[in-house]
């Protein structure tokens, strides 16, 4: 139920953001459609910790800031490779075991790996992620372990 309320408020906020017309009729239509969609979603029974991961902590925002800095660094490194005339790359596949307990935490970690250019989570194999790195310099276990630790910190158990 709480998730339903959060979803309805979120959808209503999105409506207000996109419509830009603030007359009672339009706001009423927005509220009506937000509630209708929420009811539909509850009937579909997809409103769980996976459909609406509202359980992450506030530290998430600080993590995003850190991740953004990492993304910029990784982008510059990849750009250097792409613009080098001979493009000496040596792609590698590595496995990494995430330490997060919840699905949301693991998805956050896997998406963070993918979002930083140079590494992409390709698949899961049991407990481990299979990660493709464009060059061996990106297959840096320490950096990945650091990211893993940071995601585990913001994960609520």
């Amino acid at each position: 139920m709480l998730r339903g309320i959060i979803l309805a408020l979120g959808l209503f906020g999105l409506w207000l953001l996109l419509s830009g017309v603030y007359k009672p009729l339009w706001i009423g239509l927005g509220a009506g459609s937000a509630i209708a969609v929420t009811l539909l979603v509850m009937r579909m029974d997809v409103l769980d910790s996976e459909g609406l991961p509202a359980q992450m902590r506030f530290g998430t925002f600080r993590y995003w800031g850190w991740l953004q800095a990492e993304i910029v660094k990784a982008n510059l490194a990849v750009t250097k490779i792409l613009l080098s005339p001979r493009m000496n790359i040596s792609p590698a596949i590595i496995r990494i075991k995430p330490t997060q307990q919840s699905d949301t935490g693991r998805v956050t970690f896997a998406n963070s790996i993918t979002l930083t250019p140079g590494t992409v989570t390709v698949d899961t194999d049991g407990d481990a992620f299979i990660v493709h790195a464009v060059d061996e310099s990106f297959a840096d276990m320490d950096a990945l372990a650091d990211m893993d630790r940071r995601v585990t910190v913001i994960e609520q158990r």
């Binding site: 993304i71 910029v72 982008n75 990849v78 750009t79 792409l82 790359i89 792609p91 993918t114 979002l115 930083t116 250019p117 140079g118 590494t119 992409v120 390709v122 493709h132 464009v134």
Partner: peptide, 14 residues
Amino acid sequence: FYSRMHAAGVTDTL
């Protein structure tokens, strides 16, 4: 293909 993904990532992010 797999290495091309990383180049596409540069466009998508920064």
